[in-house]
Design a protein around this nucleic acid. Structure first.
Lengths: 241, 241
DNA sequence: GGAATAGTGTCTATTAGACAGTATGTC
DNA sequence: GACATACTGTCTAATAGACACTATTCC
């Protein structure tokens, strides 16, 4: 925000990126939010102080080669995830969503496994934490982030009905039971085991691991992993016709 | 492009909108392209002179209340369509896609009926015309518009498999045979009549018109129209499982 | 053997696709 | 009646869902 001309801020749109970072933590679909810092002497130039917000920030033309690179950079600054599933959601832009000026934000959504997530606190941020979706939507978020979050959840739920996206929420190797649990958590309803397994195997995006993992009790399960290069597969039908 | 500071153009991203306007004309999926004007004395500030390009332009903070409003304005300036089906496709933005500066463009795609299209030529544009998709993709378009067009066509073809989107390519009233023809043109393969009709009627997005239209020969067909407020319906399966 | 979890076989209901057949208009 | 286009009935194959059954481990 250091333009020379006093009117510049009002004449050109500001471009930022925001990422809705999803993970399933303790059987709940959750989103990573950051709390915006409180800076007592700069109320005008740093709005929504103390509010929870999506991970994001202004695109830096000097630093970012592309919008996606900007989103990846912001994500790296907040988590230690190297290559998450990242999909562009939608761009929101109008005259009123930022009190300072006409602003547009390109929103991505990311899916990351629940294992080994370490949060990093950065500039302009007091805290970062995971919120279950139901709790997050009840918060009064910064900017139009409530609406953005809602759109992101709707898109995720819609795509889970007919794609293999949820596999990106698990570590590299996982059992079909674990995968099914992820689907059930996001959709909020139980799925029939036999039909689920048939569908996943028929879709042909899984490699069967030779090893099995003996858990505390019960028959050990076969470990599967997503075939190399297959970010997502589309099923020919949705669940429960 | 009239920023005061000489470095301003290099420091902030430029935000524009582009719309891939589709229509089915004479049984061919077509896209509306405009030819960029030739201005001999301003080669640097107006790139890709004489090239064909998507309909679009820079977002004007003073004029446009939102990005979608900007897209609608550009569309209005080129065609006389009042309320087309308009869906945000994707935003493309990086350091190299515009020779002048780091630029981002929010791309929409529009579906408009083939009847009553009148083209209007505007500023910076010499011609506007419809190109069949196969011909358009062979042109060397301005900016990264070849890539954008490709993404748009892929998205359209994908959605046609499981949505009622193509109904937006027809006038208000149409027969099921006409609707089927649109699907076949976009998908590039014939569909089985009985299954097609069952699917469309089962999806429940059509109102049966009481009138029939006596054509030159053959049995007159029932006219259908999309139920009020139903922009698109999702089918539970794709065609040809 | 009992408990727990993983995985499969079989039946049924649904429905998409195929295709022949019927309906209704013009000439 | 001939022709053209619109529309429907019926058969079949595929498969999702339901659910009971089997498999493999730990204790």
């Amino acid at each position: 925000m250091s333009r020379k001309s006093p009117k510049a801020g009002a004449c050109y749109p500001l471009l930022s990126v925001d990422t809705v970072i999803f993970s399933v933590i303790e059987d709940r679909l959750s989103v990573l939010l950051v709390k915006r810092a409180t800076i007592t002497d700069e109320k005008l130039t740093y709005p929504y102080q103390g509010r929870w917000a999506l991970v994001g920030g202004v695109v830096d033309v000097g630093q970012d080669q592309s919008i996606e690179a900007a989103a990846m950079r912001k994500l790296r600054e907040k988590t230690n995830i190297e290559s998450p599933y990242l999909e562009q959601l939608q761009t929101f832009g109008d005259a009123r969503r930022d009190p300072r000026q006409w602003a547009a934000t390109v929103v991505y959504f990311a899916l990351i496994p629940s294992d080994g997530i370490a949060l990093v606190e950065g500039r302009g941020v007091e805290q970062a934490r995971w919120w279950p979706i139901e709790a997050a939507t009840k918060l009064k978020l910064a900017f139009d982030h409530n609406r953005i979050l809602q759109v992101a959840v709707e898109r995720l739920r819609a795509k889970v009905e007919y794609t293999s996206l949820p596999a990106n929420l698990l570590p590299k190797e996982f059992t079909l039971t674990e995968l099914q649990r992820i689907y059930e958590v996001i959709l909020g309803r139980p799925l029939e085991q036999s039909a689920f397994r048939k569908r996943m195997l028929a879709a042909g995006f899984l490699d069967e691991g030779r090893k099995t993992r003996p858990t505390s009790a019960g028959r050990p399960a076969v470990l599967y992993s997503v075939k190399a290069g297959r970010k997502a597969v589309y099923f020919p039908r949705t669940f429960y016709v």
